[in-house]
């Protein structure tokens, strides 16, 4: 038996919106301590990893570990039934064939229920090595989102360079070339802060198209954390207050 109730259902709605363009079918792992999922996009370039702790739920019960195979496209359609102020409850029996999703609005007394059919997914689970990232950049999520969006209109690829003084996003395309450079900024206004933690400088190139997809999660968190290592995929991380973390991994583009 699994049951989890989230008071702020909008968070779950946003999570689904933030991953639906990247992954199609996903195994959701239920454990007594929380909910997690890991899935790659069809081209094996990007990976989504979500971890939600039971502590963030108003009510959480999972007697055993369970795997719920879900079509994210269909889950997104069901989530559209939810009002932004709804509480969301997820329910599944042992050996379940469907996931029951209940939307409740205590103010308007409206309740919506949907039984989403589960599917069997034979997905490849990747072991992500523990990595000590040599550059970690914490940046306002709205600002990072805007930088990526605007640069994408100029080039498909961005080169991210870090050093102890700044993080730089540079592009080179048919239009010309240029860069956005952000220095370490720990101003009193928290939302303006850009925090650089660089032990070793990194320079890597990435497809901006994916960054734009990841940035759909910017409404979940005020800050985006970029974790870089010269020999590793980029991690774009969004902390979800009191609930968990949504991470995206992106393989770099490599020069011939």
């Amino acid at each position: 038996m699994f049951e989890a109730k989230l008071t702020e259902g909008l968070i779950l709605k946003k999570i689904v919106e933030s991953i639906k363009d990247i992954v199609t079918d996903v195994n959701i792992d239920i454990s007594p301590s929380g909910i997690s999922l890991q899935a790659m996009d069809s081209s094996h370039v990007a990976l989504v990893s979500l971890n939600l702790s039971m502590d963030g739920f108003e009510h959480y019960r999972a007697d055993t570990n369970m795997v719920l195979g879900v079509s994210i496209a269909n889950l997104a359609k069901v989530m559209k039934l939810a009002d932004n102020n709804d509480q969301i409850t997820l329910q599944a029996d042992q050996e379940a064939t469907h996931l029951k999703i209940i939307f409740e609005n205590p103010k308007t007394e409206r309740t919506t229920e949907f039984n989403l059919n589960l599917i069997t997914i034979d997905s490849e689970h990747l072991a992500i090595p523990e990595t000590e990232y040599s550059s970690v950049v914490t940046i306002n999520s709205g600002e990072f989102s805007k930088i990526c969006k605007e640069l994408f209109s100029l080039s498909e690829t961005v080169q991210i360079t870090t050093n102890t003084d700044y993080v730089q996003f540079s592009v080179e395309g048919e239009v010309g070339s240029g860069q956005v450079r952000l220095g370490h900024n720990d101003s009193e206004k928290k939302e303006d802060q850009t925090i650089l933690e660089v032990s070793e400088s990194v320079q890597q190139q990435f497809a901006i198209r994916y960054l734009n997809m990841f940035n759909k999660a910017s409404t979940l968190s005020s800050f985006t954390r970029l974790c870089l290592h010269q020999e590793q995929p980029l991690v774009v991380e969004f902390k979800i207050d009191n609930l968990g973390v949504l991470k995206y991994f992106l393989a770099p583009k490599i020069s011939d």
């Binding site: 094996h44 370039v45 990747l126 991994f249 393989a251 490599i254």
Partner: peptide, 14 residues
């Protein structure tokens, strides 16, 4: 010229 790497090159199938 750059080529898009795949995650499989970095992460092991578990």
């Amino acid at each position: 010229k750059t080529n898009q790497a795949r995650l499989d090159c970095f992460f092991k199938a578990g």
